[in-house]
Nucleic acid binder design. Structure first.
Lengths: 215, 215
DNA sequence: TGCCGTTCGTTATAAGTTGTAACGCCTGCA
DNA sequence: TGCAGGCGTTACAACTTATAACGAACGGCA
């Protein structure tokens, strides 16, 4: 998935084992969450002893980091595919929602509670920028038609994160709202905080989206 | 804080030690997150040996559960205080934001990524209902004046979670939006996803709130 | 005042975890 | 065919949560 098939047999074998390790890690995370990831358990399931894994990953953090990068890459691909027919904020939002519900722990791996000490490597911020660009592209069609808000004025002077993008402040505003509303519904839903409430989160999601695009 | 001062000296001593354990746990969580909570470390800092703590808490989960309940209680109190002058959704929202920023890990303890296997005890759902009631009370003033949405219609038939509350569907809708928008901005902010973006999340938060109350 | 039981804190132990070190095999390259 | 490097192993260290068993201290009660 990430490693290209290499020239030498050794490297090919190595990347194959790395992929297999990640596969086991993914399914373990999907069922028990990232905090329950155990290198020992993965090793046992692969029929080899604990320390063997350290030939392939420097440690737990290294493995998780690569899973995070894979998750980002997968999300970026999904959103890219959704934007293929043309930029459309609603299509983008629904694609992201589908992607999250398809594997909740993978979503939480990216947007869930972070480990306080952990700092993301550059790869991650690069893909995050890519996601932001797609979001801005989608929000650039049908730009909002409403009076300037205080946030718009603020974003006029604090748009470093979109310096490369020609979108006007109102579009930046809309992109941020889309992102946070999406995440607001999604993360509470995935965390089970709607559990006993018996309403359909998809409709709340749709309502938030429609309200955003109605301006 | 939670235990009442008891009759016998033994019980008084016991509740005092329990409180001291929680105090250490709280500050440990505040700096390193809930996943890094170590009973051994707490014991050492209190000058006693590891297994001694098991006289006071059945285990790690038991301690965390009590911290979660305390956090809910603290949040409920903060929102109660904010609602004292009279129901006001904006005041409630800002109180919740202040409470979260005051101790991010405490907020994440409640609304962060949950452990897949874990199931909250009844106390928690009771306080959660209390929070929901305050939210509905606040949203009941200045009810939204807008045409009925599909979500409104859906909530008409799926309002078990607000069965005891007389609020109309549009108010339920607004309460849900307030909650999810609040959490959307807050959790991304606390997770550091706005890190390199250099805009002020407080203004985004204010804009989301104003948009919600403008209808 | 003295006794006696409950509770507390201890050490020892079990079963985990991550991660390092040292050793041998086996592969694949020259 | 030889040999160097990668690979997997066992052994070990330093952690963690959690239980068991023992001794001491404390408090209620006669």
């Amino acid at each position: 998935m990430t490693e290209t098939d290499a020239a030498t047999p050794r490297e090919r074998y190595r990347s194959q084992v790395r992929a297999e390790i990640k596969e086991h890690a993914r399914e373990q995370i999907a069922t028990a969450g990232a905090s329950a990831l155990s290198l020992n358990a993965i090793a046992k399931r692969m029929g080899l002893s604990g320390p063997a894994l350290y030939r392939y990953y420097a440690g737990r953090d290294d493995l998780i980091t690569e899973l995070v990068i894979d998750a980002y890459r997968s999300l970026a691909d999904a959103l890219q595919a959704a934007s293929a027919p043309g930029p459309d904020p609603a299509a983008l939002a629904h694609a992201m929602r589908r992607w999250a519900l398809d594997d909740p722990q993978r979503y939480l791996l990216i947007y869930g509670t972070p480990v306080p000490g952990y700092h993301a490597p550059d790869h991650v911020t690069l893909i995050a920028n890519e996601l932001m660009t797609m979001l801005l592209d989608a929000c650039s069609v049908t730009p909002p038609d409403r009076p300037t808000t205080p946030l718009d004025a603020h974003l006029e002077n604090h748009r470093d994160w979109a310096a490369h993008h020609p979108a006007p402040p109102a579009v930046l505003h809309r992109a941020l709202s889309l992102w946070t509303r999406l995440h607001g519904v999604l993360s509470l839903e995935l965390a089970g905080h709607f559990a006993g409430m018996a309403f359909d989160p998809a409709l709340l999601f749709a309502a938030e989206l429609e309200d955003l695009l109605a301006d």
